[in-house]
C-alpha cells in the first residue's frame, strides 16, 4: 500500500510550502513594522508556580485552608497592628481599617492637619473595600508592614475576622474560614462603579 507512505510525504511537502509562505509573509511584515520576536520562554510547571499563587480572588480561588476567630484576631491586632493602625483601627497614622471613609466629621477641626500629615487616613477598608477576600489577600502578602508574609494562614483569618468585626460585619463570637469568608457582604460593593467599561461589578 504505497499510498499510505505517500500520503504523509505529500503532507510534509504541503506543510513546508505553507511554512515558507507564512515565513515570506512575515518577512514582509518585519520590514513594515518590525513585529518579529524571539521565543525564549521556558515551560513553567504547576509545581514551580504554585508557591507564588497568592492572589485571592473574590470567587475564593486560592484561599488556603484555615480558620481564625475574632477573639484571636483581637490579640494579634494588639501585638502586630495597633501601633500603626490605632487602638480602634481608625486613628492612624496608617490607613483606617474601620468605619466610614472621608472626614471624621463635617467640621473636623483637624481637617487641614489630617490632609497634610496623613492623607491616607481619608480612606477606610470597612467602607470602601468590596470583598473580604481582598482583606485576607492583602494582610497575608503585605502586613504587618515591617514583616510581610510572616503570619500564618490561621492568623490571617483571625485578623480578617477582627477587622470585619470592627466594622459590624461579623459577630464577636465568629470564626472565619475559607468558606465563611465568602458569605461576607461588604458595603463597598454596592457603592462601586467602574470607569473601565469592560467590567460588571
Amino acid at each position: 500500500m504505497p499510498s499510505r507512505f505517500l500520503y504523509p510525504r505529500c503532507l510534509k511537502f504541503m506543510l513546508s510550502c505553507l511554512l515558507l509562505v507564512t515565513a515570506l509573509g512575515q518577512v514582509a511584515a518585519y520590514a513594515d513594522d518590525a513585529t518579529y520576536t524571539t521565543d525564549l520562554g521556558v515551560a513553567l510547571s504547576p509545581s514551580e508556580v504554585s508557591p507564588y499563587e497568592i492572589t485571592i480572588f473574590p470567587s475564593g480561588k486560592n484561599l488556603p485552608e484555615g480558620k481564625g476567630s475574632v477573639k484571636q484576631g483581637e490579640g494579634l491586632y494588639q501585638n502586630h497592628c495597633m501601633m500603626c493602625h490605632g487602638e480602634e483601627g481608625d486613628e492612624g497614622p496608617a490607613a483606617r481599617l474601620k468605619g466610614s471613609d472621608g472626614w471624621f466629621s463635617f467640621s473636623d477641626p483637624l481637617r487641614v492637619l489630617r490632609i497634610d500629615k496623613y492623607p491616607i487616613l481619608l480612606i477606610s477598608v470597612g467602607s470602601l473595600w468590596p470583598y473580604a477576600t481582598s482583606i485576607f489577600d492583602y494582610i497575608r502578602r503585605a502586613m504587618p508592614h515591617y514583616a510581610p508574609k510572616s503570619l500564618s494562614n490561621d492568623e490571617v483569618y483571625a485578623l480578617t475576622a477582627y477587622i470585619l468585626y470592627l466594622n459590624d460585619l461579623l459577630a464577636k463570637e465568629s470564626v472565619l474560614n475559607e468558606e465563611t469568608i465568602l458569605d461576607i457582604s461588604m458595603p463597598g460593593k454596592q457603592r462601586s462603579v467602574s470607569a473601565w467599561p469592560e467590567i460588571e461589578l
Binding site: 480612606i123 477606610s124 468590596p130 461589578l201
Partner: peptide
C-alpha cells in the same frame, strides 16, 4: 482580582458617594 489598590487607595469617591474603580 480586586487587589488592595483596586479596593481603596486608588479609587475615586464620586460626588454621590459612589466608589469609582
Amino acid at each position: 482580582a480586586f487587589t488592595k489598590d483596586e479596593s481603596g487607595l486608588y479609587s475615586d469617591i464620586l460626588d454621590d458617594g459612589k466608589i469609582q474603580r
